[in-house]
């Protein structure tokens, strides 16, 4: 393992320390707890709060989207491990200003159970909560088992759109409905070229041969659909596009936003070459692209590879996607 770290066991602590030193003017830790990152200054009272949480190792997911126009709080777990329900509950309590709290997070076993438990604790203290789980990864289960799918990069769009709806003053049920509507129109699939290394494990979580590509791999190295011989950028784009297009009706006149997301070790140049191919496939169908997102949004440490997300829009979703948002890791200004 070659990583620019100090002691592996200090990894998460030191990442948060770095984030607070760099962006402490826009983020704060709840009672100094490095596992609960909150928006600073807090949102206006009466706004529905939106929180997320999950394991570390995916920056900017999850805490990178805490900020104006997006999230109010994030519970931080160890690398690839859920935060505890107690931390989630403390966060929910800290961000609620009476309008209730939307828990918006990826569909993973540990996160589900802990958030469910945190919501029970919140309900006991008369805090209203709603849960919407992100399940955008088409490679993680077939369509008939879509409720089992994992949440990956598409969650960034959900944070953006739900965040804008909450800023606009919608109530908890309405914000949850907007998030769900967005997610019903979001699909993602990824490919991996090399593995990642969890600092405290010290060796790669899996291996991919020099001339191979793993199709549909998850952001923790969950096995994908198949291993293929290495392919060109155009062939990868077309493979992913076909899989997603089979589930979203993309017709002449449809409008979408496209996210090409690097997993950590893939250059922006390569992301743009793949974006170009996806944009051409969409243009050939007469589909218009609105606010493309090309860059690193949901990573898996030093994993090489990328994911493509397609988000089918209508006028309402477009308006929420366009609305201003600014966090230390995301801005709507440059999209």
């Amino acid at each position: 393992m070659r990583k620019l770290i100090n002691k592996p066991e200090d990894f998460v602590e030191e990442v948060i320390e770095g984030i607070m030193m760099a962006y402490g003017d826009r983020l704060r830790l709840h009672n100094g707890d490095s596992r609960i990152v909150l928006r600073n200054p807090p949102a206006r009272p009466g706004k529905v709060a939106i929180v997320t949480g999950g394991g570390s190792g995916h920056l900017p997911v999850f805490l990178g989207y805490v900020g104006r126009g997006m999230l109010d709080g994030c519970a931080v777990g160890n690398v690839f491990a859920s935060p505890s329900s107690q931390k989630m509950f403390e966060m929910i309590k800290a961000v609620d200003s009476g309008a209730g709290v939307l828990c918006l997070y990826g569909n993973y076993g540990g996160d589900n159970l802990n958030f469910d438990m945190a919501c029970e604790m919140a309900e006991f203290e008369d805090i209203k909560t709603k849960t919407v789980r992100v399940r955008d990864d088409v490679a993680s289960s077939p369509p008939e088992m879509a409720e089992k799918r994992r949440g990956v990069a598409g969650m960034v769009y959900a944070f953006k759109v739900a965040g804008a709806a909450a800023e606009e003053g919608l109530n908890l049920d309405q914000v949850a409905a907007v998030a769900q509507k967005a997610l019903d129109n979001i699909r993602t699939m990824g490919v991996a070229l090399s593995p990642c290394v969890v600092p405290q494990v010290g060796k790669p979580t899996f291996s991919i041969k020099e001339n191979e590509i793993e199709i549909g791999m998850g952001i923790h190295g969950e096995p994908g659909i198949e291993v293929r011989e290495m392919m060109t950028a155009d062939a990868v784009a077309s493979l992913i596009f076909d899989k997603i297009a089979a589930e979203l009706e993309l017709n002449e006149g449809s409008e979408v936003s496209v996210m090409v997301n690097g997993l950590g070790a893939t250059p922006l140049e390569e992301l743009l070459i793949v974006y170009r191919a996806v944009a051409k496939l969409l243009a050939a169908r007469g589909v218009k692209v609105f606010m493309p997102h090309v860059g690193e949004f949901a990573t898996s440490m030093e994993m090489a590879g990328l994911s493509v997300t397609i988000f089918k829009l209508d006028e309402e979703l477009k308006r929420y996607l366009r609305a201003p948002a600014s966090t230390p890791f995301y801005t709507s200004e440059n999209k």
């Binding site: 469910d116 438990m117 029970e120 604790m121 309900e123 006991f124």
Partner: peptide, 9 residues
């Protein structure tokens, strides 16, 4: 814990 929480409510 969920059983205990349900009882708590």
């Amino acid at each position: 814990s969920f059983v205990l929480m349900g009882m708590a409510k």
